[in-house]
Each structure stands twice: as C-alpha cells, then as structure tokens.
Design a protein around this nucleic acid. Structure first.
Lengths: 346, 346
DNA sequence: TCTGATTGTGCAACCGGTTGTATCATTCGA
DNA sequence: TCGAATGATACAACCGGTTGCACAATCAGA
C-alpha cells in the first residue's frame, strides 16, 4: 500500500489536515513544517489518492471523450491525431482523458455519454461528430456537464470548435473550377452530420457561384470510410457520364474513391481529378499525393481542451471557434482532359 | 445535483445502508423493500457516484492505456483500431478506459505511466511498445499494479499478448524468396523495441534458411512512421545496388518506402516488390495494394482486455499469448525483373 | 501584567458510497 | 409462556483526502 496523509502525519506527530495543507502550499503552515512534511512525503513516495481527492473536492480533473468507433472513427487517422493532441493538451493542464468507445452510432452512443457523464467521473466532455438535432447535446445540457463540441452545434448556448468546413470546401472546388472543370462530383459524409452539410454547402456555393449546374447523379452520400468512398465513387461512375473531377468530403473516403477510379481504368488526374478534406498525413503518401484541405488537427485538439477548461471554470459564456483551413493542391488534380471532355459531351 | 443514496433513504425513511443493499441485490433486504427502493431510484434518476464507490471498494473499474504519441502512434491507424477494440471490450466488461498520451518516448512516458498508475486511478494497465529492458515494466511491477503488455516481454512474470511477429515476417520474406528474389532489403522499426527485433528475426531466419546472404547496406532502421520509412528506403536506394524486394516492418513505413521508390523512378513491383506488416485498412487502398502481414488487431484489443481482467481478478499466473498472423500477398509483390537483376549483377 | 493580534495546528465534519455488526420484531419449538 | 432462531433494518466505521472553525502559543503594545 502506498502511504497516506495519515501515515505521514503519524510519523511526524502532526494531524493529517496539517500535512494536507503543507503539501498544498497553504500559507498558514510554518515553513519549517512544510519542509519536514514535503521531504518525508518525497522520501516515503507519497502520492495523493486521486479518488479520495476527487470525492472531497468534487472535481475529478478528468475530461471525457467519446469516439464512436463505427463505422467511421476506427479507420480514420484524423481521430487519432485529434485524440493525441487533446490528450497531450489535457495532460499539460493537469487533466486526464477518459475515453469511451461505444460501437454504435445511435442509442449505444447516447448511453455511453450518459454513463460517462452522469456518475460524475468527469468534469467535462468533448463530443464528436455532432448531428443536426443531437440527442447527446440535450442530454449533457440536462445533466449540466460542461462540454465542447468538435464540429458546429446549432444551439448558441453550446460551445464548439471546428475547422472552416464551408470555406475549405469552397476553395477546393473553386480551384477545380478555375482549372476548367465543369462536371464536378461530390461525395459527402453522412447527411445527418453537420460537418457533411457544411462541406457540401461549400461545394454547392462554389458551383453556383460559377454558374455551374449540379447534377444529382454526381452527388453521393458516403460514410467517411474508405469502403464508403469506394462505393460512392463507383455509383457515380456507373451512373453514366463520368465527372472530370470529384470533391470528396474527407481524405479517407477519397482513398476509397481513388481506388474505384483506378479499378474503372480512369487515371488520376488525367481523367478525373480528386480532392479530399482533412489533411491527414497519409494524403501525402498515396499515388498521386492527394490534394486536400488541411485542417489544423492538433490545434483543434488543443483548442478544444482549452475551451473546455474555460467552460469548466465557469467563466464566460459559450465559445464558438472556427479555425482556418488551408486548401493544399497536389498532383491528384489537374486540368480536365480535353479529349475526355469531348467524349463526355458527345 | 443528482440524488444520493441518502436522498432515497430519507424519502423512504430507511437507512442508506439498506438502500445500498437493496440496489445491489443483497438477499437480506425484503423483496418488498427492494421493489420500493429500486422504483424510487429509477424515478429519481439515481446513478451511483463512481468516485465514492471507487473510494469505498478500492476498485475503479478502469483500465489505463498509455499511447506514446511521438513519433509513432499518432500517425498509425494500428493504434486507433487497437484502442477502439480494447475500449469496446472494456466497456462490455464494465470497465472504462483511461487514456494517457505523453508526447515523448523516454522519461515523459515513464512519468505518464507513474501518474496514471500510482494515484490508484486505475485497476490495471495496458502497456504498449515494450522495449528490451523497459523501465516502465519495472515501475509497474514495483507499484504492484496488474498490467498486460501489447508485445513481447522478456520477464516471464509479465503477461503479454502479441501477434506472431517472427512467423509473420518469415512467411512474408519466404514468399519473396519463393518468387526468386535474392536481394531483399529490410526496413526495421526502432531497434530497442521488441517487435522490431522479432520481425527482423523472421526476416533473418527466412534469408539464412534459403542460404541467402544479408547485405548490411540493405538493412535500415526506421521509426514506424511514414517519413521514417521514406528516409530509410532512400538510404537503401542510395547505398548502391538496389534490392529487388523490401520487407518493411510496418505498413505505415511501407507507404513511405513506396513513395521513395516512386520518386526514384522505380516501379512497384516490377523493379522492387514491397511487403509491409500490420494489415491496416489503408494497405488495401494504396496503389498497388500493399502485401502485408495481417494482424488480428481487434482480437489483440479484446484479448488484451480479457487477460488484464484475469490478472486483476488475481486468478492464475501471468499469461503469454501469441495470436497467429496471416501473410496476405498483393500486387505490390511480384517476381524480380530479370533485366533489372542482370543490371544489378553487372 | 493584561489585552489583542498573529501565527501555527488540531478537531471534526464532509464528500457518497460499502460493509461488519448490533438491534429489533417476529415466529417458532418446547 | 419463555428462550432461541430467524429475518429485516439501522448504526457506525471506513475509504483518503479537503476545509471551516476552534484553540493554543507567541509576541507586541499599553
């Protein structure tokens, strides 16, 4: 058993309250006592029991994070990077990370949030993949637990942080348009997620801004996974006239789409240009390197923790934070092939 | 504030001990009382305070997991998948996951383990990326915290679980040899990690089993990251005679190596065959699809939790578990090009 | 010498559960 | 009718910290 405050107090013939105060730097204890206590504590290898402290202070110094693991997150490096950055930032601020990985999207996820939030294991929570009318947000509001959403929440009372989805998507699609593409497909994420909508909105706005029509046959909903991107791309190819470019709402789906294009004998970018979204490390390592919209993933993780800590301290109102993203062109995009265009038009 | 046992007791004019026993199904409370208590608890939305319970029972029902985030883990989907599976398995067994993501490999990581283990926040720990004489293992042993290692530990007292690194590497290299390759390079992981050594041993054993010499110039140590694989492959290419195949000790490095090969104008697999290790989802989506050794990643996660739970229950001795892996050929490997061989020999 | 700060420490309650043991009211056998 | 066995519940200690308040000791000023 590791030593307790009482053990130290016994040795020094002090009370445990004095020992507690000495270790916490309370100015009321004499300097000499503080020195004796802290050196003995050091020597005995004393470490405060986090559970007992949490019970007494009603603060756990722990942040909860729920990463739904199906179907998306498990296969998406975006989350690991976010997780790592958030965990690191939390640690630097004296917080730990409590992770829950429910294997479902619906009721299971809601239950997971409740089981994390309600037994007061955590002081605050980071919520990922928000949906339009998200049950989980209502739940946390009801419990009164501070939280921050990774993504955009419609309720102005809710704090959130997000990359600039719409602007990033706009820039990417605008670049395609500037290269001369007119038939630009789009593979979206799950329609109920706010990030999907925002990115699609950027696409839509760039297209209509250039006076380009949107062909329903070139819009497919994916699920943010490689197989999802693959299936969606295949559906677009099979639907008839192939587009000369495709904007995919995340990198992982873009990888699936690239594979579908290769399988169909279409060259990238000669036949079809591909752009992704997120800027995960892997984008630079596929062939050709994937043009994508760089999100400041680590910054998102750090800021999410920072905002959450502010929320937990009770100061200030809800924070809404949009971080700039940067479109990064690469060899997966190029001008449309005139010949292909001609064939398509024919 | 959510209601406590005392609140329920007050309403029903019972003592909190009776309420506690009623809710835990103690046979000593009358059936009628149990019904009254549990229906009121339900109605009031009672949820036991996990902290208080942990303090009283000295069990936190929590498993700690330290994922060092630099340089490797952040960029490696292997860990996210493992994490998800472990988290899910833990949840099903009534445990939660405590995550720590120190940003360093050395002292920082040791400290992170200590800070997680010592304040008795957790009942057990999963330790990743073991090294030859791992300080962290000694630390946990000293504290007396049950733990399981993801990877092989040399101390027979320590429980561990691992894919069959040596056999997997052997099979992969043996396949290359059977295709006619004789100059086979190897990009290893960090030399101090046991997984690196075991995989290299499989490589070495396949080579010597076939009577093939190992050229020092074709062995490079990487760091399990894409850039690391890229740098290592470039070093091998620059060292003089290019190999006709390369065995890379994890998939992520293999992606980096593939890029280096492309940059050097070498075709895969026509000029150089490439094999990875891990079997992450992304391996199927690069071009050409990467031949790799499939690890049962989710199974590893589940089993790690299971073994740990056994350790925590105190039953039985240490468990050592090797899960079979499966070499999966793909288009990134092919027979050596005769012409290239001829040039190389010349 | 007495009063009143000032300083350093101890006491005890509290956080919200769990659990060993005592108490009380029945019911049963003799 | 009495004592013992049984069943249901209450009491109180405990887990290991934190914290409000009381109290003792020291010291300066009157």
């Amino acid at each position: 058993m590791s030593p307790t405050l009482q053990d130290i107090a016994d040795v020094l013939k002090l009370s445990k309250s004095t020992v507690s105060r000495a270790l916490s730097g309370d100015p009321r204890v004499a300097e000499s006592t503080r020195v004796r206590v802290s050196s003995l504590a050091q020597h005995m290898g004393y470490r405060p029991n986090a559970t007992a402290r949490a019970l007494a202070t009603r603060r756990t110094n722990t942040i909860g994070l729920v990463v739904p693991w199906a179907p998306r997150s498990l296969s998406d490096p975006f989350y690991l990077e976010f997780l790592g950055a958030a965990g690191d930032a939390a640690m630097r601020s004296g917080y730990s990370l409590f992770l829950s990985a429910p294997d479902g999207d619906g009721a299971g996820a809601v239950r997971a949030h409740a089981e994390l939030a309600d037994p007061r294991r955590i002081d605050g929570m980071i919520l990922t993949e928000p949906k339009a009318n998200d049950e989980r947000i209502a739940l946390l509001h009801g419990i009164g637990l501070p939280f921050v959403v990774l993504g955009v929440a419609s309720d102005p009372e809710v704090s959130w942080i997000s990359g600039d989805n719409t602007a990033g998507a706009f820039d990417a699609v605008d670049h395609l348009i500037s290269l001369g593409h007119t038939r630009i497909a789009c593979i979206t994420g799950p329609p109920d997620q706010t990030a999907s909508k925002a990115r699609f909105e950027g696409y839509r706005s760039a297209m209509s801004g250039a006076g380009l029509p949107i062909d329903r046959n070139t819009i497919e909903a994916g699920d943010f996974t490689q197989p999802g991107g693959h299936t969606a791309m295949r559906a677009i190819i099979d639907s008839g006239r192939a587009p000369s470019a495709v904007f995919v709402c995340n990198d992982v789906m873009a990888f699936g789409a690239m594979r579908a294009l290769r399988e169909a004998g279409l060259a990238i970018p000669a036949d079809v240009s591909v752009v992704g979204f997120d800027g995960i490390a892997m984008a630079e390592y596929v062939d050709p390197p994937l043009a994508t919209v760089n999100q400041p993933i680590q910054e998102l993780g750090r800021m999410a923790v920072q905002i959450l800590i502010e929320q937990m301290s009770g100061e200030g109102g809800p924070a809404h934070c949009v971080l700039p993203v940067q479109y990064r062109p690469s060899n997966s995009v190029g001008p449309p092939r005139t010949r292909a265009e001609a064939i398509n038009r024919g």
